[in-house]
């Protein structure tokens, strides 16, 4: 191999990406060739220096703008474009005689006046509820996307987003339950249990929490689940709590807490 070939391997060498054999080969060459050794030293410094340049952080409204556009794109994709014959069809309905045209115009005016009078009251309410629906859709999207991330702190952010959701949102609810049961990170699971407090009115949420009780292995999460169930005062939790309280393999503190919760629920 020529010097040029060895040098082309330097970036991988600095990254630690060479296999043992290649690395040993390169190191042997560097030991023997002063020119390559000098280049490796000075450029290695540059390479490492590049690693110190902080990554540019995106502005905060980048995310907001993306979700807004995605939302409107989805709406645009759902609405079917009007057919080309629309205007023609309308024209065939309209009268051709001037007298009828005037009559129709007058009738439309009257209808329009009354309709306008009626609509005025409803319009504001309709706009507000439409806006509210749009905001909710966006929050749901952010929550669900964040809960999918590899990074635990991103998933935590997803869970905190869930607090802003309406209780009736079943998709977010099932994503939270999924997180409680399957997220590898204890902190994320704990946060999800807390977030489910907000869903305490939902029978699905309560059933999910009860089922999760037998699946959890982390005592921290178990205790948090028990506390939540005790607070919800749901008697359906009694059998699951009883099983846990009698489970010899379970953590003693968890069993004690289950016992305590049973006491509260039986009152």
């Amino acid at each position: 191999m020529k010097c040029e070939d060895y040098r082309a391997r330097l970036p991988e060498y600095w990254e630690g990406a060479l296999v043992d054999e290649e690395r040993a080969d390169l190191e042997m060459h560097l030991a023997a060739c002063a020119a390559c050794r000098g280049e490796a030293r000075s450029l290695g410094e540059i390479w490492r220096g590049l690693g110190n340049i902080p990554e540019a952080q995106p502005p905060s409204d980048l995310r907001r703008r993306f979700y807004e556009r995605l939302e409107s794109y989805q709406q645009g994709a759902l609405e079917t474009p009007p057919g080309p014959s629309w205007a023609a069809r309308l024209r065939s309905w309209l009268p051709t005689h001037p007298a009828w045209q005037i009559g129709l115009a007058a009738a439309m005016l009257v209808v329009g006046f009354f309709a306008g009078y009626q609509m005025d009251n409803r319009r504001d309410a309709a706009q507000v509820s439409q806006l509210r629906a749009e905001v909710n859709n966006m929050r749901q999207l952010v929550t669900l996307s964040l809960l999918q991330q590899q990074n635990a702190s991103e998933r935590l952010r997803g869970v905190t987003y869930a607090y802003r959701m309406a209780e009736s949102d079943t998709e977010v609810l099932s994503a939270l339950l999924e997180t409680i049961n399957h997220d590898p990170n204890v902190n994320v699971r704990l946060a999800a249990v807390d977030a489910l407090h907000g869903f305490s009115g939902s029978p699905v949420a309560r059933r999910g929490l009860i089922q999760s009780l037998s699946r959890q292995e982390s005592p921290l999460v178990q205790v948090s689940l028990i506390d939540t169930l005790a607070e919800m005062k749901d008697e359906q939790a009694v059998p699951a709590l009883r099983t846990l309280a009698g489970d010899q393999a379970a953590n003693p503190q968890v069993r004690q807490r289950a016992e305590w919760a049973l006491g509260r629920l039986s009152h």
Partner: peptide, 9 residues
């Protein structure tokens, strides 16, 4: 299309 949000994140 909602899955694009995950890729975006």
């Amino acid at each position: 299309l909602r899955k694009l949000a995950v890729l975006f994140e």
